[in-house]
């Protein structure tokens, strides 16, 4: 495992925990898209079914379990514990526009036509677009709380570091996984506009608000 990959995993973990803590400490999930969080829970569930079939390393197993546990806890906080603070009126992205095309694509373009492999591929495609309901919500309300911005930034950094990890692996190991790379590129591009706003506004101590 190279440094890019490890730092990528850490920033992913940081993003997930940051969001959990934000909701827990403020006792509120205002401004957070429950739909994006459900999609991430689906992504982790579909991808990490290999926990039952394939042991890779203790690190790998622990991270997978933590990701799944945290993402389900987040969904539970939003839809159950702090339901009253959930901003459902602004969380109006139609998720079927993401789930249906990515499911169809997973059937058509995959490494192997087996149930686990199709689910893995589906999770890769779905992850690349799962943040869209959240970004849509931010654009609809025109602003995001600073912690929410940090969350989105850490999540974007994670996929960007994975891109460097893939360049590294291709160069030194001759390994590449085209499905993961193309989906990872799409995912990173979706964050670009947000990166710009984050650097020009949030890092200068301002709240992220979009021009009217």
């Amino acid at each position: 495992m190279n440094l890019f990959r490890f730092l990528g995993d850490l920033s992913h973990l940081l993003a997930i925990i940051l969001l959990l803590l934000k909701i827990w400490k403020s006792r509120s999930c205002a401004g957070i898209s429950g739909k994006s969080q459900v999609l991430f829970a689906v992504v982790f569930t579909a991808r990490y079914l290999d926990l039952f079939t394939n042991y890779i390393s203790l690190y790998n197993t622990c991270m997978k379990v933590v990701y799944i546990a945290c993402s389900f806890t987040t969904v539970w906080l939003i839809y159950s514990k702090f339901k009253a603070t959930y901003d459902g009126n602004h969380d109006t992205f139609r998720v079927e526009f993401l789930v249906v095309p990515t499911a169809i694509l997973a059937f058509l373009v995959n490494h192997d036509f087996t149930p686990l492999e199709i689910l893995w591929t589906f999770s890769i495609y779905l992850e690349s677009v799962a943040i869209l309901p959240q970004l849509f919500m931010v654009s609809k309300t025109g602003e995001a709380e600073t912690i929410t911005s940090h969350y989105l930034f850490a999540l974007g950094v994670y996929r960007t570091l994975y891109l460097f990890n893939w360049i590294w692996r291709y160069h030194f190991e001759g390994f590449f996984d085209l499905i993961a790379i193309v989906a990872g590129l799409v995912q990173t591009v979706l964050y670009c506009d947000f990166f710009y706003l984050y650097i020009t506004k949030v890092l200068k101590g301002k709240k992220l608000s979009l021009p009217a």
Binding site: R47, N54, I56, S57, H111, E117, F175, D177, A180
Partner: peptide
Amino acid sequence: QDTILTHDEL
């Protein structure tokens, strides 16, 4: 390819 199907990344 077996290495791709192992999915050692998160």
